[in-house]
């Protein structure tokens, strides 16, 4: 797998830490809205071992309209600053707009995380032009920043596979490198809780497509609704879902809590036989 300037082996599981340059995202509620706070968050997650930061300038949920100019003002210079300070870090930007994608790639971004599933068809061309990686998500065709309302599927997993694989093929045709394309079923995007649970349960089917799979589970509503937990009290449920996805072989984990997720994924990776124990001597002396 190649994410912009950085290459990774097939047996590696990667942590993608969420860094919001937003005043209103659901989990951190503007904690890293100020540029210096966001930069401190980057330093923190790098120290925690995250390989990737995912920088976002617009919250996913509906809210105040943010123009492309305002989105660029929030993320472009920040990407340049992070690129300058952390040459070994993979920088991903969470955007659906080609115009923003081009600006952040010029500033040093490695990955375009299109959380809205190809809403702007030119985003793949930008990824190809800058040799960036692209995350192909499934949203069921909804408009960016809308909540799912009475969306239903004959088979949500089949729909997620069909759409993300089709998106991956579009990216490939546009000239994005094969090893730089990742698919994401996009839990809660265009999905109710039952859909997100089924996507989790059957994640192995997405892995079987051969495209590396990213999962974004962190503190989401499907966890909250399943367990009756508010935002801020969803870590255990998130980690349970993370375990199931890790066993299936998901490669990238988009998260708020890096150390907890890393520990969970390492444990499952070892159970799956993909990672040796750190240091085993008990019974082997």
């Amino acid at each position: 797998m190649k994410l912009g300037r950085h290459a990774f082996g097939d047996d590696e599981a990667l942590m993608m830490a969420i860094v919001n340059r937003t005043p209103d995202s659901f989990f951190d509620k503007g904690a890293t809205w100020a540029e210096d706070a966001a930069f401190a968050r980057v330093a923190e997650v790098v120290a925690q071992g995250a390989e990737i930061v995912d920088i976002g300038g617009i919250k996913a949920a509906p809210g105040v309209e943010i123009s492309a100019a305002e989105e660029k003002a929030r993320v472009v210079d920040f990407v340049a600053r992070v690129r300058d300070s952390y040459p070994g870090l993979v920088i991903s930007v969470d955007t659906w707009r080609a115009e923003v994608g081009a600006a952040v790639c010029a500033a040093g971004a490695d990955v375009l995380n299109d959380a809205w599933g190809g809403a702007d068809p030119e985003l793949v061309d930008v990824a190809a032009e800058y040799d960036a990686a692209i995350i192909c998500t499934h949203t069921g065709g909804v408009t960016p920043r809308t909540r799912p309302y009475r969306i239903d599927y004959d088979d949500v997993v089949a729909a997620a596979i069909a759409d993300t694989v089709a998106y991956a093929s579009r990216a490939l045709s546009a000239g994005v490198a094969r090893e730089s394309i990742v698919i994401d079923p996009a839990h809660d995007f265009g999905k109710n809780t039952f859909h997100s649970l089924e996507i989790t349960r059957r994640l192995d089917e997405m892995v079987a497509t051969g495209w590396p799979v990213l999962v974004s589970l962190s503190n989401k509503d499907f966890v909250g609704e399943t367990l009756g937990r508010e935002v801020g009290d969803r870590l255990l449920g998130t980690l349970a879902a993370t375990s199931v996805c890790a066993l299936a072989g998901a490669r990238i984990y988009r998260v708020h809590q890096v150390p907890e997720t890393r520990q969970t994924v390492d444990m499952v990776w070892s159970i799956a036989g993909r990672r040796p124990p750190l240091r085993a001597i008990r019974g082997l002396q």
Binding site: P276, L278, R279, Q285
Partner: peptide, 17 residues
């Protein structure tokens, strides 16, 4: 006859380096 010497019981950090 330390079993930790076997390749099948290798760890990331070798406890018997």
């Amino acid at each position: 006859g330390t079993l930790a010497l076997l390749p099948s019981y290798a760890s990331i950090e070798d406890p018997v380096a």
